[in-house]
């Protein structure tokens, strides 16, 4: 069974601007795929739908076989908590919380607060010495590592990364990509990477090219 499946997904923003026009996509467990395309092609919208951050106007998104259209807020929250980890372009850490607290946060919402695991993950991404810092005291690359640790803390099945290197210099960006692909290789977590940069996209096993809300090409290595 695919981890995430999109069946003829449409997303139309008011007033009648179609961002996605009939997307069909299956992501299998353990895959590393990238979705690439110019800005405005709908790739972020697609990622939001795959991560249950938004709902499609038409069509279905299935997470582990579950039709998200049929789920209420509590179940969608549970899916986001248990099956999905997000990494955003602008990190989206909570500024008032420390590095460690930011990573612990998803476990608080799942009712199984686990600071030990959070600490272990932060050590794994090389931030073991900066647990008590605030996000503002970190560099961009460090913040993205915090975000990656946070995405992993609830053992998700899939990590959705939206331009994770978009706000970083190329060297730092490369290091983040190394980290993500090694996670995919070593832990088997499914990885969906969104980028506008074909070079970045090439790191994936499967590359999906998008344009004007449609998948135009698919390349498998």
């Amino acid at each position: 069974m695919p981890v995430v499946e999109c069946r003829n997904v449409w997303k139309i923003y008011e007033p009648k601007v179609p961002a996605l026009r009939g997307i069909n996509l299956k992501v299998d467990s353990g895959e590393f795929i990238s979705i690439v395309g110019p800005s405005g092609c709908g790739k972020s919208t697609l990622l939001n739908l795959m991560g249950c951050l938004d709902v499609p106007t038409r069509g279905r998104v299935l997470i582990g076989g579950c039709d998200t259209r049929k789920l209420g807020d509590a179940e969608l929250s549970r899916l986001r908590r248990e099956k999905i980890g997000f990494v955003f372009q602008f990190f989206n850490l909570i500024p008032a919380l420390t590095v460690l607290e930011n990573v612990v946060l998803p476990t608080v919402f799942s009712g199984r607060k686990d600071p030990k695991k959070a600490k272990k993950l932060l050590e794994a991404v090389g931030l073991g010495s900066k647990l008590r810092r605030k996000p503002a005291e970190l560099s961009g690359g460090e913040r993205q590592r915090v975000a990656i640790a946070r995405a992993l803390v609830n053992d998700p099945e899939v990590v959705l990364a939206d331009e994770p290197t978009g706000n970083l210099d190329s060297e730092t960006g490369a290091a983040i990509l190394d980290l993500l692909s090694s996670l995919n290789r070593e832990t088997g977590v499914t990885l969906v990477l969104i980028t506008h940069d074909p070079e970045v996209a090439k790191r994936a096993e499967r590359i999906i090219y998008m344009k004007d809300g449609k998948i135009v090409r698919e390349v498998r290595k």
């Binding site: 991560g51 951050l53 807020d73 509590a74 929250s77 549970r78 986001r80 908590r81 248990e82 997000f86 989206n92 850490l93 909570i94 946060l105 998803p106 919402f109 799942s110 946070r150 609830n154």
Partner: peptide, 12 residues
Amino acid sequence: GIMKAVGATRRQ
């Protein structure tokens, strides 16, 4: 939005 993305429910 961030809290919802990391799994907070509406009620939380």
